Measured scan of single mutants.
Amino acid sequence: SIEEEIKKAEEAKEKGKTFIHGDFVATTEELLDELLKRLRKKL
C-alpha cells in the first residue's frame, strides 16, 4: 500500500539508506523527500 511505502521511505531516510520504489531510486535525502511528496499525493 502507499502508506507502507511512505513508512519504508521515511525509515530509509532516517537511516541514510537508499530506497527503491519501482524505477525510482532515492539515494539522497532530496530524492527521498521528492518520492515522499509523490507518494503522499497519491493518498
Rank of each mutant, 00 (worst) to 15 (best):
S1N: 09
S1I: 07
S1E: 10
S1R: 12
S1H: 10
I2S: 04
I2A: 04
E3Y: 11
E4S: 10
E4N: 08
E4F: 06
E4A: 11
E5Q: 14
E5K: 05
E5R: 05
E5D: 12
E5M: 15
E5Y: 13
I6L: 11
I6H: 01
K7W: 06
K8M: 12
A9R: 02
A9T: 03
A9K: 02
A9Y: 03
E10N: 06
E10C: 14
E10F: 07
E10M: 13
E10H: 05
E10Y: 08
E11M: 06
E11R: 04
E11W: 09
E11Y: 11
A12C: 15
A12M: 04
A12S: 04
A12V: 02
A12G: 02
A12D: 03
K13G: 02
K13Y: 10
K13W: 08
K13M: 07
K15Q: 13
K15S: 12
K15I: 05
G16S: 05
G16K: 11
G16M: 04
G16A: 03
G16Q: 05
G16W: 11
K17A: 13
K17L: 15
K17I: 15
K17W: 15
K17F: 15
T18C: 15
T18E: 11
T18F: 12
T18P: 13
T18K: 08
F19A: 04
F19E: 02
F19I: 04
F19N: 03
I20M: 06
I20W: 06
I20H: 05
I20P: 02
I20V: 12
I20R: 07
I20Q: 08
I20C: 15
I20T: 10
I20N: 03
H21S: 13
H21V: 06
G22R: 04
G22H: 09
G22K: 04
G22A: 06
G22W: 13
D23M: 11
D23S: 12
D23Q: 10
D23E: 09
D23I: 14
F24D: 04
F24N: 01
F24L: 07
V25F: 12
V25G: 04
V25A: 10
V25W: 12
V25D: 03
A26D: 01
A26H: 02
A26T: 03
T27K: 09
T27I: 09
T27G: 09
T27M: 11
T27F: 14
T28I: 10
T28S: 10
T28Q: 02
T28Y: 08
T28V: 11
E29T: 13
E29H: 12
E29N: 12
E30T: 07
E30D: 09
E30C: 15
L31F: 06
L31G: 03
L31Q: 15
L32W: 07
L32M: 04
L32F: 14
L32T: 00
D33S: 09
D33K: 08
E34D: 06
E34P: 00
E34Q: 09
L35R: 00
L35M: 01
L35P: 00
L35W: 05
L35F: 01
L36V: 05
L36W: 01
L36H: 01
K37F: 08
R38V: 14
R38T: 13
R38G: 07
R38W: 15
R38N: 12
L39G: 00
R40P: 05
R40T: 09
R40W: 13
R40E: 06
R40G: 07
K41M: 08
K41Y: 05
K41P: 04
K41A: 13
K41V: 07
K42S: 09
K42H: 12
K42Q: 14
K42C: 11
L43E: 02
L43T: 01
